[in-house]
Amino acid sequence: MTDFSADSILVLLDATPSGKLANSAAELLGAAGTIGTPIALIVGSAQLAEDAANLGAATVLVAEPGDGLTIPTVDALAAALELVRPDAVLVAHSVEGREAAARLAVRTRSGLAVDAIGVSRDDEGVVAHHLVYGGAYSVTSAVTFGVPIITMRQGAINARAEAAAPDVRKIDVTASGKPAASIDSVDAAVIASTRPELRGAAKVVAGGRGLGSAEQFALVDRLADVLGAAVGASRAAVDAGYIAQSHQVGQTGVSVAPELYVALGISGAIQHRAGMQTAKTIVAINKDADAPIFEIADYGVVGDIFTVVPQLIAALEAKK
């Protein structure tokens, strides 16, 4: 017997090592709210339950964390699935989230849909929407039967759910005993920057190999600050050590879809475009008039970034 509503959507909320809900929480609960009643699962501190309710969770299930990588989360998800019997399970497409979702799908023989940018219902249940090959195709996927387990791309969902009164319940989890890797040490990622986060940012200024050095990459930061934008980079810039990998935009980095994307000294290789070509407005500055980035730029400047960008910054500052 359960008293969960018939249209329940179970949502796994990631917690950060510093003990907060991950940014994806608001998006996941928002997406769940568009198709049913969001029921949150937190593996960890009950203190986060109130935050989850504020973000729209009608009920917050709290499970004790266990030892080892991912397995305790999967065990808790399996217990919550049994208890809630939801119409779908939504999980962030973070490294942690997607692996938990993947294991849950294997364990419960459920269908798995990954990297969705939205969810909706059709006559037969919850379906997932995806952008494939860098946004060249929109694909809708469904599962043949049962509860779909769906991972959601971070920074892709604008819907937000209304705050709910906290209804918090502890749940008991039976450990599966599946072998897990052990976590020997953890360094919380230091977010020293006051700039917007790349995922979900409204504006992104990205730099490539054309910046030439880590010191000169500061030009990207300066323009980003004037525009209130997040900082992105090409893989070549990451490989050259100009900036950390978490800023990489593209096929094997972050996918962004901002209002404005400014590409500085980036040639526009297809793998880079795969992560940014759905931006509303694309601006590119490159000294090579034949650089492929110009094929998709709304406003292209053939010129040297080290003269054009300082002039742009000065002009923008003058107008403010």
Partner: peptide, 25 residues
């Protein structure tokens, strides 16, 4: 998991392209 619908998005087109004459910024 199965695909129930697929559409191809129209390709992006290039817009304005200027060459810097000293005032592009």
């Amino acid at each position: 998991s199965i695909i129930i619908d697929i559409t191809e998005k129209s390709a992006r087109k290039a817009g304005v392209k200027i060459t810097d004459q000293g005032d592009a910024g």
